[in-house]
């Protein structure tokens, strides 16, 4: 592939130039790293610190308890041994299961849908501008509003979704989407996919836009079937862009909070890791325990992303030439 490039032209030049560039790189990175360190590092460290304390309503009263929020062995008066802490909390593992299930399904749907929409938007047709703006609307509406809006549309008695499905004879009676355990997750997925597919579409589109047009031209002249062009040429070229989009969608999906919180706040079928750690942090005055859950969530996310980067062979540095 002729477009492949790696770490800049330094290879072609002398060592002093490479040094000079490295120095420049440091100064280019410094402001961002400084900002990240100043603003993000402190709260993150605080959360990890709190996870080792038994802090409750008043966060400064906690004392250091090592790993007791994570693992604790308790011997009851009856002589029975109980395992406690986040690692032995069935509610937590239920939340992990919910979150992972939700993330995998939603990200797959969003990626495919996003890619399809991006391909359509990349084609030349009349009214493309309007369509492109229209596509972005779901992403543009604040989540707290769109969640409420959907809760309204999904309502069993006066929700429009049931009405449409009834009119189309797809269902025979009104479904209480957010109330039933078996449909609550579907409801959350419907809304999330609707909301975030545009995000994926826009990023895929940006990737597509960076693909030089003459490649298509060449393929067309050679009479290659468009589907083959897509899989053999387009997809490999936009793969890095899609991979990054998927990572960030994955991170967002695994941390999902507001949508579930508004749509199905207390259903055990949809409670996610963020929802349950918020519950402990804020509602139940278990600040230490909630922080331990957040830290575990952080660890799970880190593992997930590392696995994805490793298994998906996402090229972090660009050093392996394609």
């Amino acid at each position: 592939m002729t477009t492949a490039s790696t770490s800049g032209p330094a290879r072609a030049m002398g060592p002093s130039l490479q040094q000079q560039r490295a120095r420049a790189a440091f100064w280019f990175l410094a402001p961002m790293l400084f900002a990240l360190f100043l603003v993000a590092a402190w709260p993150l460290m605080r959360t990890i610190w709190f996870s080792f304390t038994d802090a409750t309503g008043n966060i400064y009263d906690g004392k250091f308890v090592w790993f007791q929020n994570y693992v604790r062995v308790q011997t009851l008066d009856s002589g029975k041994t109980m395992y406690r802490g986040v690692f032995f909390d069935p509610k937590w593992w239920n939340a992990v299961y919910n979150t992972v299930r939700f993330s995998v399904v939603s990200v797959i749907f969003e990626t495919v849908l996003g890619l399809v929409i991006a391909l359509v938007l990349n084609a030349e047709f009349k009214g493309r501008g309007i369509v492109r703006a229209a596509i972005l609307i779901p992403w543009a509406i604040p989540t707290i509003v769109s969640a409420k809006m959907w809760a309204w549309m999904l309502n069993d008695q006066y929700g429009i979704l049931n009405d449409i499905l009834l009119n189309l004879h797809l269902i025979s009676e009104k479904i209480a989407w957010t109330a039933r355990d078996d449909t609550a997750m579907i409801a959350v997925l419907i809304v999330d996919i609707w909301k975030t597919a545009p995000f994926m579409a826009l990023l895929c589109l940006a990737g597509l836009q960076m693909v030089p047009r003459d490649i298509y031209e060449a393929a067309r002249i050679d009479g290659v079937h468009p589907i083959k062009v897509f899989f053999k040429v387009t997809l490999p070229l936009i793969r890095p862009a899609v991979a990054v989009a998927v990572i960030f969608r994955m991170l967002d999906a695994l941390r999902i909070f507001d949508l579930v919180y508004v749509l199905t706040p207390n259903s055990t079928a949809t409670k996610t890791m963020s929802v349950i750690s918020r519950e402990n942090l804020i509602d139940f005055s278990k600040f230490g325990y909630g922080s331990a859950e957040s830290t575990t969530l952080f660890a799970i996310l880190a593992i997930f992303v590392s696995l994805y980067i490793w298994l998906g062979r996402v090229d972090l540095t660009g050093e392996t030439s394609r």
């Binding site: 309502n155 069993d156 008695q157 006066y158 009104k174 209480a176 989407w177 957010t178 109330a179 039933r180 199905t264």
Partner: peptide, 19 residues
């Protein structure tokens, strides 16, 4: 009561009532 009552808060019940 409708099955959906299991997802009702105050406003949803008022909606059904006031209609």
């Amino acid at each position: 009561s409708p099955e959906g009552v299991l997802s009702y808060q105050e406003e949803e019940s008022r909606g059904v009532w006031q209609a």
